[in-house]
């Protein structure tokens, strides 16, 4: 057991590891005192850490370090951050695998034989494409079934602790086709609202579909849009401006 002192905890650890010539995963690090910047030099103190070289090369000590409540322990250099994101990316992949394993039996029970093609778009967004002949059955009336499955997929992700990853389910380019239809619907509804001078209520639709309508009419000089009602019956209202 040796003690090291430096201005910050991470510096102290680095110093200690260097002088003991051990890897971080192979050492037991105990923070005796965290550093304080102080105020105009008053109350300033250095960080003190104790480092013990471990013989067994168990990975658990790295976890111990991560579990220490002190924020300063997290060394803020670049390499650490990239491994972090890599790890998260990796775990997203794992989550997607779990999700596919969850959804596949469900759609099979619904009588749809489909090939699931997961794709992670970025850290926060992923998509699963269902390659199937029976797309109509999977989509349901106005996308009722596929939207419910998408909700369920999100619920499942939240349950296994990936609430930051949002999921979209798609089949046979349905989302794209639907977006085009919604844009046309938006324009048609705008004309109707202007022609009648009355607000026009659209059918209830999920938030991401309402967003398409709102975006489409956002810059319109003749109509305003807003949503009314409570989920899942929330609907877009298009009203003439002025």
């Amino acid at each position: 057991m040796s003690t090291f002192t430096a201005k910050t905890v991470s510096e102290a650890i680095e110093k200690g590891l260097k002088s003991l010539n051990v890897d971080k995963s192979n050492a037991e690090i105990n923070i005796v005192q965290t550093n304080r910047k102080g105020f105009f030099g008053i109350g300033k103190r250095d960080a003190i850490v104790e480092i013990d070289v471990k013989n067994n090369e168990n990975a658990s000590n790295t976890q111990e370090i991560a579990a220490t409540p002190t924020k300063n322990i997290k060394i803020n250099n670049q390499s650490e951050e990239t491994t972090e994101t890599k790890k998260r990316y990796h775990s997203n992949e794992q989550a997607m695998e779990d999700l596919v394993a969850y959804l596949k039996p469900i759609v099979e029970e619904l009588g749809v034989s489909a090939e699931l093609q997961p794709k992670i778009i970025n850290r926060k967004f992923a998509r699963i494409n269902f390659k199937t002949e029976q797309e109509g059955l999977l989509i349901g009336k106005h996308g009722l079934t596929i939207n419910a499955l998408q909700n369920l997929a999100q619920i499942y992700l939240n349950h296994i602790g990936y609430s930051r990853l949002s999921i979209q389910l798609d089949t046979a380019d349905y989302r794209h086709r639907r977006t085009e239809i919604l844009k046309k619907l938006a324009e048609k509804t705008a004309r109707e609202a202007v022609a009648t001078g009355q607000p026009v209520y659209l059918d209830p639709m999920p938030s991401f579909e309402r967003k398409v309508i709102h975006n489409q009419l956002e810059n319109s000089l003749y109509v305003n849009t807003f949503s009314s009602g409570r989920e899942p019956y929330r609907a877009v209202v298009v009203e003439p401006q002025g």
């Binding site: 079934t145 909700n151 619920i155 349950h159």
Partner: peptide, 22 residues
């Protein structure tokens, strides 16, 4: 509670899927 969810959202989702079966 988990199965019902906030404002019954989870329950409703499950029902929608179950009712969609032939």
């Amino acid at each position: 509670g988990r199965i019902i969810g906030k404002k019954g959202h989870v329950a409703q989702t499950i029902r929608t899927i179950v009712y969609s079966a032939r």
